[in-house]
Design a protein around this nucleic acid. Sequence first.
DNA 1: GCGACAG
DNA 2: ATCTTGTCGC
Length: 228
Amino acid sequence: MDKIAKLNYAQAVILQKELCQKVILKPPPNFSPQLIAGADVSYSRKDSKIYAALVVLNLPDLTLLETKTIIGETTFPYIPGLLSFREAPLLIKAFRQLQIKPHVILVDGQGIAHPRRIGLASHLGVCLNISTIGCAKSRLIGSYQPVPPSKGSYSLLKEGEEVIGFVLRTKKGVKPIFVSPGHLMDFDTAYKILLLCLKGYRLPEPTRLAHIEANRVRAKFSSPPGLV
DNA sequence: GCGACAG
DNA sequence: ATCTTGTCGC
């Protein structure tokens, strides 16, 4: 059914090389998003279920407007660099069920800060034809200098001389996050949007809420202990 | 050959 | 990512 589930490593990489050519590192004309979404996926240790969550918030007040959670089955293993094949299918399905379509999505994962410049956020953006920003909690590739301690400070993430993202301090005293443009997005716009989404926590509000919602459905629907 | 390695 | 309570530090 799902062709993606049948892809092997080499085939998946070939598909990424095709998709990466469709990535646009520039936002739409006069881009000023009022609706922003957060996307995240959680897993169950026992069964092979995965839970995707999308939340839509209003900008700049960050009011929650809609929450969409959906349950799926794992069809691809986790392989660094190929996360999209594991998480994108369910997130795409969830997106199609949204009543309110956002102007941009903050994704829990990398954008172009990826070996082939096509991380989960970029992959989703191309598939859905929407602006996306990669917002990861840790590094996949690239090197960077220490990030200053104050909120909003950052240091460029590069691979060789190429800038692929930035490491952002979202709050004083906490580990910085890794931000990179996904699709229909540039560094400057990504930075400005990120700052608008900070609400006193390490993670920007859209991604933070999506994470909470993904965990909530898992707690509610995953197999209860002792009921094998 | 040896590490690194989003979630 | 997931399994998990209390506990240390800003």
